[in-house]
């Protein structure tokens, strides 16, 4: 059990600042997901917690104690690497118990731990095998078991699912949620995949270019994005953004919050456009609608619109978002909010 805190942390790689003066608190026992595009510094943060890529300045606190000078192996953290980093020359059993041996855990205890953990992740039959004879999913579980067996207070995971196929990934997501519930320890999970972030996180920390864009539970990130970057990063397809034409303000709405019809619709924001592409996804259908010079994506349960058809779309007022020229969100209590809203009617 442990909380983690970053205090004024800066990280440079060859004189280039990747992270500058970052402050973040990761709560005890929560499943926190660091998400963002590649190069945003999320893995860098994770490696700071592990101690394998220390910060240039600032401090990292574990349970309020500065751990900057504590060796990685003595921090009580365990990490699952993207490429698993299993010791290739050791058997599955040796891999799992290597850390225990280093920590001088006695033989009986070791045997008990290895067996119960490998039972839990379904590796019992493979304990004598070499990693090279295992499938990707099994290797993933070896990496997980190796982390679990140390009974760490913090689990660090660096894109652990990115090397798995789609089906296995979906299964592992559920397994990880269950694992977190069972262990109740702090999980810090790094991914660039917003679906993983949304599905597993208690708290999402969305980063871009070394800065935290928003730190909130998935629902809040989705419904109340802080800025255009967050709004467009979460959701597939991303939020539609259009120029309002007033003060450089932009408006946005999600493809799935659109009402579409062949008849005119009653909404604060409506327009009539032409379907240019159609993607049938099964339960939903994606349309690209051309309107004047721009185009918008919409996601609809109705699959009967066809390409080149003119349709009406409308968005309700609570599903409309406004962003200032610097990308930050304009909230309802902003003094000009009503003006922008009115301006949209004339769009």
């Amino acid at each position: 059990m442990a909380s983690i805190e970053f205090v004024n942390v800066t990280k440079e790689f060859e004189k280039k600042e990747i992270i500058k003066d970052l402050n973040l608190r990761i709560e005890d026992g929560k499943f926190t997901v660091l998400v963002g595009p590649s190069g945003c510094g999320k893995t860098t943060l994770l490696r700071m917690i592990a101690g394998i890529g220390p910060q240039t300045s600032g401090s990292v606190l574990l349970n309020g104690k500065d751990i900057s000078n504590i060796a990685p192996g003595k921090r009580g953290v365990a990490m699952v690497f993207q490429n698993y980093a299993i010791y290739p020359t050791m058997s599955v059993r040796e891999n799992i118990e290597f850390g225990l041996k280093n920590n001088k855990v006695n033989k009986i205890e070791r045997k008990k731990l290895v067996e119960s953990i490998s039972e839990a992740v379904g590796l019992s039959e493979y304990l004598g095998r070499k990693p090279s004879t295992l499938s990707g999913g099994q290797r993933q579980r070896v990496a997980l078991a190796r982390a679990m067996v140390k009974q760490p207070s913090v689990f660090l995971m660096d894109e652990p699912l990115s090397n798995l196929d789609a089906k296995l990934r979906a299964q592992m997501r559920i397994d990880l949620i269950e694992l977190h519930k069972k262990l109740g320890t702090t999980f810090v999970y790094v991914t660039h995949d917003q679906v993983e972030a949304m599905s597993m996180a208690d708290t999402i920390v969305l980063m871009n270019q070394g800065l935290i864009q928003q730190e909130a539970p998935p629902e809040e990130i989705y419904h109340e994005p802080n800025n255009i970057f967050v709004a467009q990063f979460i959701g597939t397809p991303p939020m539609n953004i259009g120029e309002l034409g007033v003060d450089g303000v932009r408006f946005g709405f999600r493809p799935e919050s659109v009402t579409a019809s062949t008849e005119p619709v009653e909404s604060p924001f409506t327009l009539q456009g032409e379907v240019t592409t159609r993607e049938m996804l099964g339960s939903e259908t994606l349309y690209q609608i051309r309107y004047k010079e721009t185009s918008f994506m919409i996601k609809s349960l109705i699959d009967k619109f066809s390409v080149n058809q003119k349709i009406h779309i409308g968005v309700n007022s609570d599903k409309l978002y406004f962003f200032a020229d610097d990308g930050d969100r304009i909230h309802k209590d902003h003094i000009h909010y009503r003006d922008y809203f009115e301006a949209l009617r004339g769009y």
Binding site: A50, G51, I52, A71, P72, G73, K74, V77, A78, M79, F81, Q82, N83, A85, I86, Y87, P88, F98, G99, N102, N103, R146, K150
Partner: peptide
Amino acid sequence: SPNIYEAAALDNTSKFR
């Protein structure tokens, strides 16, 4: 792979080991 050494560091492995 440097990851292997990092994993070893997290496993509290001595230099000799």
